[in-house]
Computed example of a mutant assay.
Amino acid sequence: MRSFPFASTAQGLHYAITIFQPSETIRLTTDFEDATLGGRLFEAAGAVNITNIVYAADGFATSADVQISSTVGGSIRPGLAARGLLDGLPITVEAFDPRHPESGTFDMVPGATIGSVAESTNGAIVLAVQGRLALMKSPMCQVYSSMCRARLGDSRCRVPISVDLVARGQAYVLKDNMKLQANGKWGASQAWVKKLEGGSYNDIVYECTTAGTSHATVAPTYPTVIGSTVTDGTAVFTARQAWLVAATGQALDFFNIQLDADPSVTPSILGNIIPQTGELTNTRIPIKAYDEGTRIVTLWQPFAPSNFPAATEFLIHPGCDRTMATCRDVFDNIKNMRAEPYAPNSDLVTGRA
C-alpha cells in the first residue's frame, strides 16, 4: 500500500505534470506560480487542471484527464495535440504540497501514458491519462501482420534516421550484430554514429565496419567523403549517406514549402520535415508529397506560412510504408523487418479448394 509523503495538515494540494516528448520534456503545474520540485522547474501555464480521476478498489487512481490551454510560444502550442504529437507519450501526474515542496511528490497514476487526445478550436486540450491497468485492454504480445510493426528509425527498425554522436571509450558493433539494446546504446546507435566536422554533420553518418571501442580521449578527424574510413581506437567507421539531411526553404502557402536546393536524399510520402528554427523547432511534420522538379514539399496539414519564412532551416527524411518491398529495396533493412509477409491471410486459411 502506497502512502502520501505529506503532513496530515497539508492543505491545497496541487499537481506537477511531466510529458516526456522525444525532443524535450514539458513540465507544467496546476499551481498559480512556478514550482521547483526535486530541482525540476514546473511552469504555471494557467488553465491547467486535473479532472475525471478514476479510482480502483485500493483507493488509488487508475486514470485521469489533464486539461491544458494551449498558448502561442508556450510549452503546449496550438495544434500540438491536433497533429498527434502527444499521442502515446509517457506522462506523470504528481501531487505536491506547494507550501512544503520539500515533502516531495506522490505519483497519482503510476506508469501512465497519454491515451486519447482532444483539442478544440479555441486551443483547449484534454489528455486522457491511462495507467497500467489500461494496458490490459490491449494486446500484451506481438501479433502477426504483413505490415511492419516497427516505426522507421526506432530501436527495432534500426535504420539510422537519428543516431547519437560518437562517444569516447564506447564499444560499437557491426550492423548485423545489433540488438534491441547493448553497451548502453539503443537501436542503430550501436553501429552508427554522427560527428560534427567543420561545423556540420555533412549529411553523413558513420557505420561501424570493424567492431571495437572508440578511443577514450582522442577524437580523430572523421572523413566527409562517402565511402572513406577512419580508425577510432580499435573501431573502424565508414562514411555513409545519411537518411536525415539538412535543407533550407520557405512556405509558399499553408500546405507547401519550397526548398532552396535539392536535398541529398529525396523526401517521400510518410517522411518528415522538421524545422530547426522558429516556434515549431523539432516538430515532426508529415510529408504528403514531394515534387523533384519544383522542389516543393506538400504537407498533410496546414501550417501558418509565417512559421517558415525565407531561409528556414529544416531536417528532412524519406518515409516508409512498412511493406517488405520498401524495407528491402529502399532501406536495405529486411533483416530487421518486424512483420510476417508470407503468413497466410484469412482468405487462404478459411477458403476451400
Rank of each mutant, 00 (worst) to 15 (best):
S3A: 15
P5W: 00
F6M: 08
A7K: 08
H14W: 05
Y15R: 08
T18M: 05
F20P: 02
S23P: 07
T29G: 10
T30P: 07
F32A: 13
A35V: 01
R40D: 13
F42C: 02
E43Y: 11
N49L: 05
I50L: 02
I53F: 00
Y55F: 15
S63D: 08
D65L: 03
S75D: 11
A81I: 01
G84N: 03
L85Q: 14
L86S: 04
D87H: 12
G88N: 11
L89Y: 04
L89P: 13
L89V: 01
E94A: 13
P101T: 04
T105S: 11
F106I: 01
T113Y: 09
E119T: 10
L127E: 01
R132F: 10
Y144V: 08
C148V: 00
R151H: 06
V159F: 02
I161V: 10
G169D: 13
Q170R: 11
D176Q: 15
N177V: 05
M178R: 05
M178V: 07
Q181D: 08
Q181T: 09
Q181Y: 12
N183V: 01
G187N: 01
V193T: 11
K194H: 02
E197R: 13
G198N: 10
A211R: 09
H215T: 06
T217K: 08
V218L: 09
Y222I: 02
P223N: 03
T224R: 09
V225M: 08
I226P: 03
V230P: 05
F237T: 00
T238W: 08
A239V: 05
Q241V: 06
L252W: 03
F254W: 14
N256T: 12
V265A: 11
N272D: 08
I274C: 04
Q276V: 01
T281G: 06
I287F: 06
A289C: 00
D291Q: 05
E292P: 06
G293R: 05
R295Y: 01
I296K: 03
I296P: 05
V297W: 03
L299A: 10
P302M: 12
P305S: 09
A311P: 00
T312F: 13
T312C: 15
T312M: 14
I316T: 07
P318D: 05
G319M: 02
R322Y: 04
T323V: 03
V330C: 00
V330Q: 07
M337Y: 00
R338A: 01
D347I: 13
G351C: 07
